[in-house]
Write a protein that binds this DNA or RNA. Structure first.
Lengths: 234, 234
DNA sequence: AATGCATTTATTGCATGCATTTGTTTTGAG
DNA sequence: CTCAAAACAAATGCATGCAATAAATGCATT
């Protein structure tokens, strides 16, 4: 009874709660591109009516994480290869702004907070892949949050989630080792180095992530039925 | 023209219709920051139930055009001065990408299409301010659409609308004359010039727009009732 | 006359119900 | 036995109703 009251109050908006849960499920690859998201099931699972579930799906569709077609069951979005490229291009610009604004201005407390996330990444590097990816994303989001600029934070967050989904769309395993050391280097560069150097390092990092995931798999992206069956056709 | 892709992206056609109408009202300054948007009135005006109106408000809130607080009437967003700066910073990066991709690759048909919009701007320069601003925005959106990159188009469109709203928040009149000639120069630079030159011109243009609107009015931002009434108070 | 409190009204939050549409199974003809 | 058409099941599209909350108004008290 008290629990009901508390959960209702702490989660001022139930729509936001569902969005958060689904975003996390998507970034952790518990939900994969193409997975169905019926309003009924969502509502039942989260203890709300279809109305609320529907609204949440609308929000996620606006963020590009969900595909919504009229009279059809909502599905987790399946970004195309071109989409993925464009997302990373935009992400590059946005995160470059983040670094430019933080370079040389990181407080010790902030550096510690970032390192804590990287530590968590390190600890999760042999655990389930989902946690690893989520933490890597959290690192970038936290960095953006430290700019204190709400609009920049919002766009960086959104684009990071979309980037994560894009990576999932191509089924590449997440190489956490690289991310961990690159993230550590980034913290140092942002804290001490000149803005140009930190910026260059972020560019390098993101391009590495993108090429590890996208360039290598230029042919293996969407499992096309015809491609899969080609060897069996003769 | 501009609404085709938006309506396909969103779900219910009616939700998209309301969004489009409200976006336009906002960009034309028929709706000003802080104006109330009660679900009932919207529903009645557009011939739909509150459910649909509510959903539309949710979408616009996700785009940053509407402020939605629990149990409170939705209002047109009132971007802060810092928000406006951040929006223009992001817009700069995004539109730079647009120019970079279009430089030297504009077909004659596309150039003609862009010129048609600028002509319309020219024709509207002494008419109502709203049309002038809307057309200036359409120019930038059309440019983005010519990249053929859906994600880039989407972010540029959104940020252009937010920029328009930001300008409205500071009550600056729209100087259409400058925009018209600058837009013409842009078309030429993109069509013929090297990418660097076109890019620099876009940067210059957007910085000019931002400084005309933002820098000059650093003290006159939100029309506060107390401020407005100050001269009458004695 | 100004402030705080109660009452009334306006508005949102959310679930439910019905019509419509889509997807699936069944059925029946060839 | 195959395939198409019809019947069924599942899911969405949307409006409406009721409870809860906030804004507005009026009243009383200082």
């Amino acid at each position: 009874m008290a629990g009901e009251k508390r959960s209702a109050r702490s989660e001022g908006d139930r729509v936001a709660g569902i969005c958060t849960a689904l975003r996390r499920a998507i970034i952790e690859r518990a939900l994969l591109p193409g997975d169905r998201l019926p309003e009924d099931s969502l509502g039942e699972r989260f203890g709300v009516s279809r109305t609320i579930a529907r609204h949440a799906l609308g929000q996620l569709a606006a963020e590009g994480l969900v595909d919504l077609r009229r009279n059809r069951i909502a599905v987790v979005a399946t970004p195309s290869f071109e989409d993925a490229r464009d997302i990373f291009d935009i992400r590059l610009d946005l995160e470059r702004q983040v670094v430019r604004r933080l370079a040389g201005k990181l407080t010790d407390a902030q550096a510690r907070q970032l390192k804590a996330v990287v530590d968590a990444e390190h600890g999760a590097r042999h655990g389930p892949e989902g946690a690893s990816i989520r933490l890597a994303t959290e690192f970038h989001v936290l960095l953006a949050e430290m700019t204190g600029k709400p609009i920049l934070i919002r766009y960086v967050t959104e684009i990071c989630y979309r980037a994560g989904l894009s990576l999932a769309a191509f089924g590449r395993p997440h190489s956490s080792d690289c991310a961990v050391s690159e993230h550590l280097d980034l913290i140092e560069a942002i804290r001490t180095g000149p803005a140009e150097k930190a910026e260059a390092m972020m560019v390098e990092h993101l391009e590495a992530v993108a090429s590890r995931a996208l360039l290598q798999s230029s042919g293996a992206k969407p499992r096309d039925l015809m491609d899969i069956l080609a060897p069996y056709a003769e």
